[in-house]
């Protein structure tokens, strides 16, 4: 049964990923991305990573996809129903894609995967939390600082020019 679910989820993920890549409409690509994310979240669940699956939904669907849609809507005419992304440079990109595909499939086939025979579906949240707070505390904090920096940068960039000008003397004084 789990195999069947796996196959179904894989088909969902791959097909919707193809839609993302192949569709000429940005919006349809975004919707395809939604189903890709959902398929991947399902795969996480199958891999007994429940927390990761929920995070996938929360961050990618609730955050990033909404941002993508917002960006598409804001940077185009809203009244224009046909948002399209025309394809350029088909031949080089095809070569790159095929090469990448070959590399990855080769890697997937030749790697000796460590197979866990008896998968136990156990909650991972507590373990994850403990690990993040002990063993991986430093990377966790570094990532937090990086994200904070990005946040501050975004806030500064989106400030209107006049506010920026008003802000500058203070900053220079501070330096």
């Amino acid at each position: 049964m789990a195999d069947l679910v796996f196959v179904l989820l894989s088909i969902l993920t791959v097909v919707s990923a193809l839609i993302v890549a192949g569709n000429s409409s940005v919006i349809y690509s975004a919707v395809g991305l939604l189903f890709t994310f959902m398929g991947v979240a399902g795969l996480y669940v199958l891999a007994s990573a429940d927390f990761l699956a929920a995070t996938q939904m929360l961050v990618y669907v609730g955050g990033i996809l909404v941002l993508i849609l917002f960006a598409v809507f804001l940077s185009n005419r809203i009244s224009d129903a046909k948002l399209s992304n025309p394809t350029h440079m088909r031949v080089p990109s095809a070569i790159v894609c095929i090469a990448l595909f070959g590399l990855m499939s080769n890697a997937a086939v030749t790697t000796e995967w460590a197979v866990k025979t008896n998968v136990e579906y156990a909650p991972t949240t507590a373990v994850l939390g403990r690990l993040l707070m002990t063993k991986y505390l430093l990377p966790f904090e570094v990532v937090s600082v990086l994200l904070l920096a990005a946040l501050i940068g975004a806030a500064l960039l989106s400030r209107p020019e006049s506010a920026k000008a008003a802000l500058k003397p203070d900053m220079e004084e501070g330096q």
Binding site: I27, A54, G62, L69, T125
Partner: peptide, 21 residues
Amino acid sequence: LNIGIYYVMAVTSLVSIGVLL
């Protein structure tokens, strides 16, 4: 679900995509 509350937060994010679309 072990991740109950978190799960609710995750699935409701579908709503925002829905209303946008």
